[in-house]
Nucleic acid binder design. Structure first.
Lengths: 123, 123
DNA sequence: GTCGTTGCAAAGATTTTGCATTACC
DNA sequence: GGTAATGCAAAATCTTTGCAACGAC
């Protein structure tokens, strides 16, 4: 049986308020504004459980710590700017992924990450 | 000026021989068959340089250590089987990725990872 | 009051770095 | 022989775990 602690609530709220996926360290920083004594272990423990429960989705980019975002955001993908290194959500999705698969493979989900320059960093 | 050491050669050969992306630990194990005294630090140092030089591509899957594969394999993506956890290369690529981007964003590259069941694990 | 949850600090795991030694060129 | 590269071990990260104290229900 799970309990509603102020720590867990602060963590959830930080993730929901954020406009982009957050790393554990970023979550800690944000949630500490509500719960100053919060420890990093608690962040990791809550992240892990929320991922297991399906409330949170991991966003893994090459050479970067895992980030997390709330599951309720609807289907979308990510764009990482080479220059400012921020990660943006992008809408839309190519339809033809199933055609990439060899015979007999069954597609359940997919992830797409785009790389380049964002509006701000583009000349 | 870079030198051709037996260690570096063993690392390169391990990656080229493999039919799938390898993790640093897997590279160490494979390369030690040729160079028994090989140390893990050397593996990391060589991986890093080879990635910087563009000879090697990192393959990052959620919740897994980074794996690496030779750059010369041509454009392709990856499929990870939920059941046997193997990672397969898949050919082909949807064409319409540029249309997903917001105005002013410039696309340079992309990665697609598919998840599901492989031929073997599919009923 | 019970017991899930927390904070802290220690332990693991993974990757990087300092430094003396080795071995390409 | 000069110096890039290596191996080892220590350090720096990042994540998990043990345990006593806390607090939700």
């Amino acid at each position: 049986m799970t309990r509603n602690t102020s720590q867990r609530e602060a963590i959830q709220q930080s993730l929901e308020t954020a406009v982009r996926p957050l790393s554990p360290e970023e979550i800690l920083e944000a949630a500490r504004e509500q719960v100053p004594g919060l420890g990093i272990a608690t962040v990791y423990r809550n992240i892990r459980r929320m991922v297991e429960e399906g409330q949170l989705h991991p966003v893994q980019l090459p050479d970067e710590p895992a980030r997390y975002e709330p599951a309720g955001k609807g289907h979308h993908h990510h764009f990482r700017c080479r220059k400012c290194e921020r990660v943006f959500d992008v809408e839309g999705c190519p339809g033809s992924l199933k055609e990439m698969l060899p015979e007999g493979f069954q597609l359940e989900s997919h992830e797409i990450t785009l790389f380049g320059l964002c509006k701000h960093c583009h000349p």
